[in-house]
Amino acid sequence: MPALPSGIPVPDDGGLPTWARPSGRVATAEPFGVYVHVPFCTVRCGYCDFNTYTASELGGGANQAAYATTALREVSLARRVLADAGRSPAAVSTVFFGGGTPTMLPAEDLARVLTGIRNAWGLAEDAEVTTEANPDSVTPESLRVLAEAGFTRVSFGMQSAVPHVLATLERTHDPLRIPDVVRWARDAGLDVSLDLIYGTPGESLDDWRTSVEAALATGVDHVSAYALVVEPGTKMAAQVRRGEVTLPDEDDQAAKYELADDLLTEAGLSWYEVSNWSRAGHECRHNIGYWRGDDWWGVGPGAHSYVSAPAAPAPAAP
């Protein structure tokens, strides 16, 4: 039988474990987030071990066209499970569509899922709603549809501005497209973050400087910089094992992290979380919620949820 991280068996009905169920109905003003996992990608990058699939890997077992409808079923289930357990979360404060590449789905489908979340729990007036995107998976029109539906933020997987680094990572976009997609998103009224990866085999310190400076040149208010981690079972792990590529040492990765911190800080972006820098007021509130231990519900394959034990009632007045 599957088990929760603590070793407690998963309830057969898909509900909350007993310890997360209050004795009566509990309304809470605590932040509540929703994560939606969209597992589709055009290609599987050699370093990636996320729960993602290309069309050829999925065969006839999944259907992108039906994905929004399936996700909405999960949202309905989540609403019932929480209600049956006596939990009444506050209006959703953050929503994050991750993947995979969520923007492989039509923007209208993403909008439909967001509407379902709004109908289930409501969205806070200042809700942060983010989608990840590849630079080659959006258009000015699709970004406008997202903004009109209530999305407030897009996080582009830039990874590098250097063609040979992108080729090693098996990323498919043209780095020259980055300024365009940032401009399109901002024209639509969306806040923009760029994701970078350092420590790719064959990437020099100058290559990394080029990438960070290219990201800053777009004027974005948020940058994520992640060290490449090659997980067992990935294509790149096999390439390393066969000696086809060589990973940088820890000193190289540390130098690149320090360079990123220097350049980003100098540009006015402050470090606020292990791999994230932003201008004041542009931090990713959804990710902060994970670090803080806020409640969230995960929708989609591989997504998980966290609902904390209800607080003990205050003692009765003497």
Rank of each mutant, 00 (worst) to 15 (best):
P2W: 10
A3I: 09
S6C: 14
D13A: 07
W19L: 12
R21Q: 14
S23Q: 06
A29Q: 14
P31K: 02
H37N: 03
V38P: 15
P39M: 01
F40W: 10
C41A: 04
T42A: 14
T42L: 13
V43G: 12
V43Q: 15
T52Q: 13
T52C: 13
Y53K: 14
G59D: 00
N63C: 13
Y67N: 03
A68L: 01
T69L: 04
T70W: 15
T70Q: 14
E74H: 15
E74C: 08
L77Q: 13
L77R: 15
R80K: 12
L82M: 06
D84I: 11
G86P: 05
R87K: 02
P89H: 01
A90D: 12
S93F: 07
S93N: 09
F97K: 00
G98M: 04
E108W: 03
D109S: 12
A111H: 03
V113S: 01
R118E: 08
R118N: 09
E125Q: 11
E128L: 05
E128I: 00
N134W: 07
S137W: 00
T139P: 01
T139Q: 00
T139S: 09
P140I: 00
E141M: 10
S142E: 00
L143C: 01
V145M: 01
E148F: 03
A149Y: 05
T152D: 08
T152P: 06
S155R: 04
M158V: 03
S160W: 10
A161Y: 12
H164Y: 15
V165M: 14
L166N: 08
A167V: 12
E170S: 13
E170L: 09
T172G: 15
D174E: 13
R183I: 06
R186K: 03
A188M: 04
A188I: 00
L194S: 02
L196E: 00
I197F: 14
T200R: 02
P201N: 06
E203G: 05
L205K: 06
L205Q: 12
D206T: 11
E213P: 07
V223A: 03
V223R: 08
A227T: 05
V230D: 13
E231Y: 06
E231F: 08
P232C: 00
T234Y: 14
M236Y: 10
A238P: 03
Q239F: 12
R241E: 09
G243I: 10
G243H: 07
E244F: 09
V245M: 03
T246P: 10
D249S: 00
E250D: 15
Q253A: 13
K256M: 14
Y257W: 10
E266Q: 12
L269E: 03
V274N: 11
S278E: 01
H282T: 06
G289S: 15
Y290Q: 11
W296Q: 04
W297H: 14
G302F: 12
G302Q: 11
A303M: 05
S305T: 02
Y306R: 11
V307T: 05
S308N: 11
A312L: 07
A312Y: 01
A312M: 04
P313R: 04
P313Y: 09
A314I: 06
P315R: 11
A317G: 12
